[in-house]
Nucleic acid binder design. Structure first.
Lengths: 130, 130
DNA sequence: TGTAATGATACCATATTAGTATCATTTGTC
DNA sequence: GACAAATGATACTAATATGGTATCATTACA
């Protein structure tokens, strides 16, 4: 079981690096510093751009910078970009078969753990990682 | 992102059912009650047997029963059977590239969240779900 | 106008998850 | 002892998610 996938991990490290540099950073620099395959890094940065976490500049001297302060970028957000909605599981049983529909204790328990995890993921921001 | 996979979920429900019945339960009964595909359910129960969570009886009138009290079977255990060791992520960067080897803030944060999740998963037992 | 950058998109490879199929083994019952 | 009802073991298949690659289009600075 893995909570954090590779692209989330790379994204976090790229964001930390960009946050430290406090400047526009091009893919090439990130690739050299982090050792991530170039096309993969590009894809990740483009996704972060689309998600409104980075701003991109095209053309010579272009690259990426943070759109908002690193205090305002949360682990939770990044995970959502690359791993979709965070959730423990839906109910896998067909609705009419589940023995205690609506009142499923299992789901309740699971949801409370989920909520807790989310609370923590929302507390970790990029600034705290730099 | 999904913390709990389908087989873990099915396993939990099967265990709850068996716990309630307080008797030997055959696959057929579980399949009928839970609506899980028979061969898949069989596989899951066999894995639980191997993991020492269930005891099996062969032959006519055979089936499965819990090996220990439902208070002593934890969500954490079941997840480990079907989803392997619970962990957020290893470090994906090659050791000599990672900028702050040994002292990686990201990993530390992640590990503390992980520890917390585990603590909660270890607290949920089958009895509390029945 | 050339070139250094990103944008968009489609594709490929591998791993994991979900499930099936089949035959072997055990055991209660007649 | 034979048969049937159960699980054990194992190998296979299908679908989805993950981890990438490849390529061409677009933008913008010099």
């Amino acid at each position: 079981m893995k909570l954090i996938t590779r692209n989330t991990d790379y994204a976090l490290r790229a964001l930390c690096y960009i946050a430290k540099r406090k400047n526009i950073v091009a893919v090439d620099e990130l690739v050299k510093k982090l050792g991530v395959p170039r096309p993969f890094m590009r894809k990740i940065l483009q996704q972060l751009n689309k998600a409104g976490i980075l701003v991109s500049y095209k053309g010579q001297g272009g690259g990426f910078r943070l759109k908002v302060n690193p205090e305002k970028i949360y682990l939770f957000q990044i995970m959502r970009v690359f791993q979709g909605k965070v959730g423990l599981s839906g109910c896998f049983l067909k609705k009419d078969i589940c023995p205690n529909k609506g009142e499923c204790v299992l789901r309740k328990k699971i949801h409370s753990i989920e909520a807790d995890v989310l609370r923590q993921l929302k507390r970790v921001n990029i600034a705290s990682l730099v």
